[in-house]
Amino acid sequence: MEIITSIASLRTRLKRESSIALVPTMGNLHQGHLSLVQIAQQQASCTVVSIFVNRLQFAPHEDFDRYPRTQTADCHLLEKLGVDIVFLPDEKTLYPTPQEFQLLLPAVADTLEGEFRPGFFRGVATVVLKLFNIVQPQLAVFGKKDYQQLYLMQKMVQQLNLPINIMAGETVRSEDGLALSSRNSYLSELEKQKASYLFRTLFQVKQKIEQDDHNFRLLEECAKCELAKQGWTVDYIALQQRETLLPANTGDTDLVILSAAWLGQTRLIDNLEISIPSHPESSE
């Protein structure tokens, strides 16, 4: 495994590769990240994992300074997995001057996560587009846990005509259902015991919909109340259309329920895809 820190060195190294897969990360790697790496390795002859904590996607009051940085442990995990290249740029490498050019994102980027973290997706899109330009991969892998991010990356590649295939990795969970996340390390031992309640609440909504309860707005409100009763502070629980990430309506069949909520001082996100069988009209 090679660890490369400069853009010029990475571009030179990648010239001899015929197929490249990129897995962008912010480090503090867990099994969820590693599952994305394994997808990449199955699809390309050279896998590049980038590790960079991107200041642009953090608001001033957020956790940029305390975000876990575990590069030595991360590189050890990636070496055991047989990764070809780890790209470890510092801030001056990716942002040698103030980043004045940024993308104008579609309106959906200002909903859900974008509503509660203004500018977040603009920062994500900026750094990912930079990484795409540097690495020139044929494939990039993102996790479904960050569902809205995955959706926007797919749309960005499509609308900017980038020759990159975006692949989605399933959310990896602990035995109790909690989605693996770097921010789980912020949780106290007591909070860790309560954290899986977010997944269980979403799963209950999924079950109710599959049992023909399609009062989506009421289901959202009931789920928020259930979490609040358990001591959570809810940012959103929203049933959306998978194709557009707009609010789901009765008759929609491909749904996703997305959530963000605070447990103590830790903000967790999760989602579940839901498929409703269509009922063809009976003919007389």
Score class of each variant (00 low, 15 high):
Q57T: 09
H61C: 02
E62R: 07
E62W: 06
D63G: 00
F64H: 06
F64A: 03
D65T: 04
D65V: 00
R66F: 04
Y67V: 06
R69E: 06
T70Y: 00
T70I: 02
T70P: 00
C75F: 11
C75V: 14
L78E: 08
E79T: 13
E79P: 01
L81D: 00
L81C: 08
G82L: 10
V83M: 09
V83E: 07
V86D: 05
V86R: 02
F87Q: 06
L88T: 08
P89G: 06
P89Y: 04
E91R: 10
E91A: 13
K92S: 15
T93H: 02
L94D: 02
L94F: 05
T97M: 09
Q99A: 15
F101D: 14
F101M: 14
Q102E: 07
L104R: 13
P106W: 05
P106F: 08
P106H: 06
P106T: 10
V108K: 07
V108H: 05
V108T: 14
D110L: 12
D110H: 15
T111K: 14
L112A: 05
E113C: 15
E115W: 03
E115G: 01
F116V: 14
F116Y: 14
R117M: 09
R117S: 09
P118I: 09
G119W: 07
G119L: 07
G119I: 09
G119E: 06
F120Y: 15
F120A: 02
F120D: 01
R122N: 09
R122F: 02
G123A: 07
V124L: 12
V124G: 10
V124D: 11
V124K: 08
T126K: 01
T126P: 01
T126R: 01
V127S: 11
L129A: 11
L129K: 00
L129E: 00
K130E: 02
N133L: 11
N133Y: 07
I134E: 03
V135Q: 03
V135N: 03
Q136R: 13
P137V: 11
P137G: 12
P137W: 10
Q138R: 13
Q138D: 12
Q138K: 13
L139E: 08
L139F: 13
L139M: 14
A140H: 10
A140L: 13
V141K: 00
V141E: 00
F142C: 05
G143I: 05
K144Y: 00
K144A: 06
K145R: 04
Y147T: 01
Y147S: 11
Q148Y: 03
Q148K: 05
Q148D: 06
Q149R: 01
Y151N: 02
M153F: 12
Q154D: 07
Q154M: 12
K155Q: 15
K155W: 12
K155H: 15
M156P: 01
V157Y: 01
Q158D: 05
Q158I: 00
Q159S: 13
L160G: 01
N161L: 14
L162R: 03
P163N: 13
I164Y: 04
N165Q: 15
N165C: 13
N165I: 13
N165E: 15
I166W: 05
G169P: 04
G169N: 03
G169Q: 02
T171W: 04
T171P: 07
V172Q: 13
V172N: 03
V172F: 08
V172C: 08
R173S: 07
S174T: 15
E175V: 14
E175N: 14
E175L: 14
G177K: 07
G177S: 10
G177T: 08
L180K: 14
L180N: 12
S181G: 10
S181H: 08
R183K: 10
R183C: 03
R183M: 04
